[in-house]
Design a protein around this nucleic acid. Structure first.
Lengths: 210, 210
DNA sequence: CGGCTTGACATTGTCAACAATCATTTCAAC
DNA sequence: GTTGAAATGATTGTTGACAATGTCAAGCCG
């Protein structure tokens, strides 16, 4: 296991703190402060900040320190588009590789999604949405893309809820997911790609509509 | 300008040293050694290594230090596939955005490419190939994807030459590029995506065929 | 002869002190 | 009252020392 105050652990915890919103966008990240908070030293905080900067979660100005990156609206749209390109590819892989067990898992998730929409529990919906995309990613078994998508996702978690709150969006989003899962379960690579591509185009459009 | 021994500069120079092959894959990257070589201190080397690890150029084991990442054959194929997904998207954008001036630039590059193939200068071909993809990326104006592609490319520069040396590959690659440029110049988004996708599928296939 | 401990060496990990830089306040001059 | 310079405080950047860990070879025991 990663040692308690080790660099790796510090990076992980700091990433978690940022993505979970415990630090606000644009908030200053003061090295000594973080060192105290995470029970470690400035050196470890420093390398953690360097990694998270590369990851796009933190911005750093010389002699002025680090801040939580403020992801602009335009940024969020760009990120969603890039996600779209990668997830489309991944959906195709998943359609080709998925086993009957995988199919059952996907159908189960879509069922839960439908239930969340019908009870109007959009928090639960967002959560299952994340699980579904993660499951497709797992089925595809493509480490390179998985890492890229993890990074991109961590940059836009903050926007997750905003778009789903648009009137009618959740119902349409559900339909899109049903189509994606149906295509994957049918082993139809082209259809899986088409529907996933459409899904993320719609998601980007929903972001734009604000 | 970035200060001489500053962290940012150190990261840049170390990245350059790795991608240009001055350090071999799997070669140990010893902190004090690098500090001397780059005329800086261990702390800066340390953060540079942390960033390059995140970037996929370096691997780091606790208490054992850093090494140049050895990109396996399978890794290279995966990376090429991920590139394919992103470049396909970018090609579509470029087709939608390119101006007449851009068209002229692209046609010029393809012409130079053809010349390189006909004189059998495959080194020049690889170089122009890189320029062409960079130009398409510039036309698309999509920072998020640009950064992702820069990272992915830096991981596979080592494989650039290997695949183009396959008999007949250069000629087919030229044809693919001509098709891509034609589609972009025609403003045909779908065709640009189709041809770019096919191009990188072929490139991945060429890698696999070794 | 082979496996195991021991010790020396090389390297990374941690830490604290100091220097450099930036932001903010104070205060005098006009 | 406003402007601008100097002092102050907070924070980052740099450096060196020390501790912890891993590596390797030599020597010891079975």
């Amino acid at each position: 296991m990663a040692k308690k105050g080790g660099t790796q652990d510090v990076t992980t915890r700091l990433r978690e703190a940022i993505t979970s919103g415990r630090f606000q966008p644009n908030e200053r990240l003061i090295e000594t402060e973080l060192a105290g908070l995470l029970a470690t030293n400035r050196a470890n905080v420093r390398t953690a900040l360097a990694q998270l900067e590369q990851e796009g979660l933190v911005v750093h100005e010389a002699n002025r320190g680090a801040r939580v990156r403020l992801v602009s609206h335009e940024d969020a749209i760009e990120i969603t588009q890039a996600r779209g390109a990668l997830e489309t590819f991944v959906a195709g892989l998943a359609a080709a590789r998925a086993t009957p067990t995988d199919h059952a898992g996907l159908r189960d998730l879509v069922e839960k999604m439908r239930a969340a929409v019908e009870t109007g529990d959009l928090i639960a919906y967002s959560k299952i949405n994340g699980l579904l995309h993660a499951e497709i990613l797992r089925i595809a078994e493509h480490r390179t893309t998985a890492k890229l998508l993890a990074n991109l996702n961590s940059q836009v978690v903050r926007f997750q809820y905003r778009s789903i709150l648009l009137p009618g969006r959740s119902r349409r989003s559900l339909a899109e997911h049903e189509e994606i899962v149906a295509a994957i379960c049918a082993g139809d690579v082209e259809a899986a790609q088409r529907s996933m591509s459409a899904h993320l185009r719609a998601a980007a459009e929903a972001l734009r509509a604000r």
